[in-house]
Structures are given as structure tokens and as C-alpha cells.
């Protein structure tokens, strides 16, 4: 699989990392990669399961500024400093690693990505190749956020389906993989399927 053979531009930078997950800050406020995206940071491949935009300084909480404006955009136009005071971060669950030769393997990297390492969005070919086997499902099902990481998984599968020639068949196959894994938890399975239904 060709992971990052071309030189795409990074979308962010690692600001916190541990073995199983890493957090990155986006270069653009309010522009995290979509939920469920497959991203790469160093050797680590991750699926975005959470994003957050907050004030830069821990002490200062954002306050409402829009009273009297007709449109939301006006808030930012009238307060240009805002973009500098906010930052968007996103968290990815490590689901595999990149062997450096351009191949993805469904195994965690030996070490978490370095801080300040660049984070790239994986191109569609890479997504297709990575989702050709189902090992990543287990990592995501064991995700830390329950319902939220399930929704990330659903989004990931939906996005991945677009990279497969028969996207419906891909989703059905994924569903069939999930069903036995969630045996005994019908509500969870149903919610997941609802999230990924084509």
C-alpha cells in the first residue's frame, strides 16, 4: 500500500501521545479531520474518534460574543483575535502502524508518535488497503469512549466504503463482521449499523 508516497501537506501536529492513542492540534482552527478519518503520525496509524476546540489559555474560558449580530460569521469578523485564542485538537485511536516501506500493518507501533510529529490524512488508496482486512475493528470496538468511538467506527466504515468498488457490499461485509463480535449486545450492534447504513 502506498502510504504517503506523494508528499501531502500535514493537517496538524502531535501534541500528546501514548501507546494506544494520540492527540494532535490542527493547523486550522475548526478544521479537524472528519470523525472516523484514517490518519498517520510517524509510524502510527489512527482513526479519529474525537475532536475539540477550546480556548488556548487554560484559565480563560470563551465567553459569548454574538449578541446583536445577525450572522454567526460576523462574530469572527468583528473579533479577529478570536482565531488566535482558540485551538482545535483531535484524538486518534492507534489502530495500526506504517512499516516505513509504505505498508500498513494491523498492529500498534512499538512506540507512540513523537510530539510535534506531523499528522497526515491517509489518501483513499491507503484507506482501501487498510480496510481490506478487519483487524482494526476490534481496536475500535474496544475504544475508550463507548458510544462515541462506536460512532467513529461507523463513520470510518462509511468513509472507507467510498474507497471500495462496491461500497454497499463493503458495508454489509463489515456489518457481518461486527455482528458476531457484538453477540449478546443487540442494542449496540443496532446502533452501530444505524450509523453505518449506506
Amino acid at each position: 500500500m502506498a502510504l504517503g508516497t506523494a508528499r501531502p501537506s500535514p493537517i496538524g501536529e502531535v501534541v500528546a501521545a501514548e501507546t494506544a492513542r494520540f492527540t494532535a492540534e490542527c493547523y486550522e482552527v475548526h478544521c479537524p479531520p472528519p470523525l472516523g478519518s484514517l490518519v498517520r503520525a510517524g509510524e502510527a496509524l489512527g482513526v479519529v474518534f474525537r475532536a475539540e476546540t477550546a480556548g488556548l489559555e487554560p484559565g480563560r474560558v470563551p465567553i459569548a460574543r454574538g449578541r446583536g449580530y445577525a450572522r454567526e460569521e460576523d462574530v469572527y469578523r468583528e473579533n479577529p483575535q478570536l482565531a488566535k485564542l482558540l485551538r482545535t485538537t483531535f484524538e486518534s485511536l492507534a489502530v495500526g502502524s506504517w512499516d516505513g516501506q509504505g505498508l500498513a500493518i494491523p498492529r500498534l507501533p512499538p512506540a507512540p508518535p513523537r510530539l510535534h510529529g506531523f499528522v497526515y490524512l491517509c489518501p483513499p488508496e491507503a484507506v482501501r488497503a487498510f480496510t481490506a482486512s478487519w483487524d482494526f475493528l476490534d481496536r475500535l470496538l474496544a475504544g475508550p469512549l463507548g458510544e462515541a468511538s462506536d460512532q467513529a467506527l461507523a463513520a470510518c466504515l462509511r468513509a472507507a466504503s467510498a474507497t471500495h468498488p462496491d461500497s454497499r457490499a463493503f458495508l454489509v461485509a463489515a456489518g457481518k463482521e461486527l455482528a458476531p463480535r457484538l453477540r449478546g449486545d443487540l442494542p449496540r450492534l443496532t446502533a452501530l449499523l444505524r450509523g453505518m447504513r449506506p
Binding site: V172, A179, P180, G184, T190, L193, R194, P198
Partner: peptide, 26 residues
Amino acid sequence: AMDPALALAPPEVSDPFFAEVMRGTA
């Protein structure tokens, strides 16, 4: 059926996607 609950509360089988996934798995 793997899950007895399935018989009690059938999923949204009117949706062909659900039906197709459940068939042969759950």
C-alpha cells in the same frame, strides 16, 4: 439465532441493509 433477544426484539429488518447483515451472522 445467536442472541435470544433477537427473537424478542427483531431489529429493523424492514431495512434491507439490516436484514442482509443479520442473515448468517446474528
